[in-house]
Write a protein that binds this DNA or RNA. Structure first.
Length: 226
DNA sequence: GCGACAG
DNA sequence: ATCTTGTCGC
């Protein structure tokens, strides 16, 4: 992976907001991805009362979904959690973890929103633009927008509308469980993003990529093991 | 102004 | 996100 040290990382919310408004214009909303052989899940956890940010990336083969590589990075937390500015808090550690990979992923599945964001620049867009990799936002809860009721079957979905624009989709990956919210991060269209998410989610509510990354980043694992 | 608010 | 045991239900 290439280097992307957050040298001039924003410190204030106003600074971060200008950056979002500027970078959102660089998001590519159409399919510009090659053959997908490796899909990576990205997740972040915190230690020591939130003073340490821990990022985990899990690279799985596609479509077999077997773990082939992973990396974990820790950094001091430097930005507070403010709805709408999640990426400024989590990405420094994520970028560091990505640099440690031996296998470069062809597609990233990020925890959180992509275009389904007040300024159309959620964490999946931010990570996609910084790495120039195709990226999808996979969120466990709704942030902005509304949608019609989604059918009970696996794969059922409804468009997510915000200010008259389709910014993502509410997707049912598993019957009897809550929906997940999919939105474009970078270099991929919404229909294609939905296809990949469904194919990465053969059994549980969340994609295998996300589950692996989450386990690697979980506090439990770091307390019991190394 | 009021309330809601990814992880 | 994180702190946390048992418990209800398929």
């Amino acid at each position: 992976m290439q280097k992307q040290p957050p040298e001039q990382w924003p410190t204030s919310v106003s600074e971060a907001m200008s950056l979002q408004e500027q970078l959102s214009g660089q998001v590519i909303r159409e399919d510009r991805l090659g053959e997908v052989r490796h899909v990576a899940g990205v997740d972040v956890g915190f230690e020591a009362d939130g003073t340490i940010t821990r990022a985990a990336v899990a690279v799985l083969s596609f479509p077999a979904l077997q773990l082939v590589d992973h990396a974990i990075a820790r950094r001091p937390t430097t930005f507070p959690y403010i709805p709408g500015f999640l990426s400024f808090r989590e990405l420094p550690a994520v970028l560091e973890a990505l640099e440690q990979l031996k296998t470069s992923p062809d597609l990233l599945l990020c925890d959180g929103q992509g275009l389904a964001h007040p300024r159309r620049f959620g964490i999946a867009c931010h990570l996609g633009v910084l790495t120039d990799l195709p990226a999808i936002g996979v969120a466990k809860s709704l942030f902005v927008g509304r949608h019609a009721e989604v059918g009970p079957g696996r794969g059922a979905w409804q468009p997510l509308l915000h200010r008259g624009e389709t910014v993502g989709a509410a997707l049912r990956t598993r019957p009897g469980t809550r929906l997940i919210y999919i939105s474009i991060g970078h270099r991929i269209s919404l229909p294609t993003a939905l296809e990949y998410v469904v194919r990465c989610t053969p059994k549980y509510r969340l994609p295998e990529t996300t589950r692996w990354a989450h386990n690697l980043a979980s506090d439990k694992r770091h307390r019991e093991l190394g």
